[in-house]
Every structure is written in structure tokens, then in C-alpha cells.
């Protein structure tokens, strides 16, 4: 059974259809990259998966469990906030702009959700927090506030914060595109480690080389639809559409995939 199943997802803002009939699955341990031009609906798909945005149609299933809708007496109802919250706790979300809690230290950023959501005793939550910060290479930064960390460090804290919840699946929304170029590598390295450890990941990214190397599959989105979904080699090189070629050309050259990258 796939860990994530998206079927017929639709989302519109006003009468603008941002996501139209998107369907795909992610198996346990799979790494899937979503690429596509700006405005194609990638972020919106990600936000619909954990109901940060309410879809207008379609089905989201996590581990076979329907998300966001409850069946009561044969009719569909919106799930309650509390019940939604419980399911979101199992899905990590890493934002483009980190979104660390600016009034909390790095350690408290990581330990907060285990304490409040998993009801862990304070000491145990802090212990997990320290372990997760170490895992993203930030031992020694426990007591720094976000504004005393570089962008790359902030994003790594954000990843540690997600890991502390032991998620079944992590959604990344362009995790490196708000970073100075010299800080991109440290975040990608952490993500590579996670991939090697078997984490299930769905990554929206413009880092085509990273996607080609790490992802099992690449999904190419355009105009709110999936236009290609397959192994990186196939999507990027074997049968690229004109739109795909145009998109790849639009990316800066230093980021373009190297010919014959491993899939």
C-alpha cells in the first residue's frame, strides 16, 4: 500500500483552477521530486496534502487513511481541527522560508511539538531535540535564537523540528530556494542523508541535479497538471516534451542536470 495516495486533486482560488485533477502515489521509502515552472501549482499540491489548504475535490490518503474528510452515517463531513491536527503530526512540512518560531531557541523549536502534540515529558522532548539537532549537524547551536542562525542553519533546524515528530513522510517546498548559493549545499547534504536513511520524501525543487541524483521519480507539473511522472532519466532525458526542454533551459546553467546523470 502506498504511504501517500493523491487522487483527482483539485484546488481553485476564486475561479482560477490552480490544481486540476492531479493523481500520484508515493510508496514507503520512495523519494519523489516535483519540478515545474513557477505558478504551475506545486506548492498548492503540497499544501493540500496536509490540508494547510483545503482541496476543492479529490482524495488524499495517508497510509490508506482518508485525510480531511470523515464518513459519518454515510455522509462526508469535514474532519475536526483536533482530528486533522493528529494526522498532520505524522507528515513533516519543510517550508521555503523556514518559518522557525522566532521567540524560541533552536532546541525549543525542535522540542515544542513532541511536548505539546506527543505529550512527551519536557526532559525527554529536550533529549530528542538535542539528538535531532545533532543529526542535522547543529550540536552547539541549541541555545541560539533563529535570528542568530544563518539561513542554512535555520532550514536545518526546521528539518530537525520535523524529524522530532518521527514523520511517515516529509514534504519539502523548495527548501533551498530562499538560501544564499553558498548555503544550499549544507541543506541538500542533510536531505541526502535522510534519503539514504530511507525516509519517504516528496520534494518540490528547482535543484534539478539534486532531483536527478536522489529521486526515484520525478513529477513534472505544468498548468496545474502532471505532464510527466517517471524515473528521472526518462522524464528529463529520454522523452522530454518541448515544454520540459523549455523549462530546463530556463533554469540557470550551473543548476542544469549533467548529461547522463544516474537515475
Amino acid at each position: 500500500m502506498p504511504i501517500l495516495s493523491v487522487r483527482g486533486l483539485q484546488k481553485s482560488f476564486g475561479n482560477f483552477n490552480v490544481v486540476r485533477d492531479v493523481s500520484f502515489e508515493v510508496e514507503r521509502g520512495q523519494k519523489v521530486a516535483i519540478i515545474g515552472p513557477s505558478g504551475s501549482g506545486k506548492t498548492t499540491v503540497l499544501r493540500c496534502i496536509n490540508f494547510l489548504e483545503r482541496p476543492n475535490g479529490g482524495v488524499i490518503e495517508i497510509d490508506g487513511e482518508r485525510f480531511g474528510v470523515r464518513m459519518t452515517g454515510g455522509s462526508e463531513r469535514f474532519e475536526s481541527d483536533a482530528s486533522l491536527a493528529k494526522k498532520r503530526a505524522d507528515i513533516g512540512f519543510v517550508f521555503q522560508r523556514f518559518n522557525l518560531f522566532s521567540h524560541l531557541t533552536a532546541l525549543d523549536n525542535v522540542a515544542l511539538a513532541p511536548r505539546l502534540v506527543r505529550k512527551m515529558p519536557r526532559e525527554q522532548a529536550l533529549e530528542i531535540g538535542r539528538r535531532m539537532l545533532a543529526r542535522v549537524g547543529l550540536s552547539g547551536k541549541e541555545n541560539n535564537y533563529p535570528d542568530a542562525l544563518s539561513g542554512g542553519q535555520q532550514q536545518r533546524v526546521a528539518i530537525a523540528r520535523v524529524l522530532a515528530m518521527q514523520p511517515k513522510l516529509i514534504l519539502f517546498d523548495e527548501p533551498t530556494s530562499a538560501l544564499d548559493p553558498e548555503l544550499v549545499g549544507e541543506v541538500l547534504a542533510v536531505m541526502r542523508d535522510l534519503a539514504n536513511e530511507g525516509m519517504t520524501m516528496l520534494v518540490v525543487t528547482h535543484e534539478i541535479r539534486f532531483a536527478a541524483e536522489v529521486a526515484d521519480r520525478i513529477i513534472f507539473m505544468d498548468g496545474g497538471q502532471i505532464v510527466a511522472d517517471g524515473p528521472p532519466r526518462q522524464v528529463l532525458y529520454d522523452q522530454p516534451t518541448d515544454r520540459m526542454k523549455q523549462f530546463l533551459r530556463s533554469l540557470s546553467s550551473d543548476n542544469a542536470p549533467t548529461a547522463g546523470a544516474p537515475s
Binding site: 494547510l52 481541527d81 491536527a85 493528529k86 507528515i91 518559518n99 518560531f101 515544542l112 511539538a113
Partner: peptide, 22 residues
């Protein structure tokens, strides 16, 4: 910043916990 509310919600905090702690 609203991003912090979204981050809290995505970690599984309830709207009340988000209000109270963030």
C-alpha cells in the same frame, strides 16, 4: 508572521495550541 502559524499547524499543533504557544 503567518508562516509560523502554518509551521505550527503542520507539526500537528491545534489552532488553540498555536494561538497559546506561538
Amino acid at each position: 508572521p503567518d508562516g509560523q502559524r502554518q509551521a505550527a499547524i503542520s507539526l500537528g499543533l491545534t489552532p488553540y495550541q498555536t494561538f497559546r504557544h506561538i
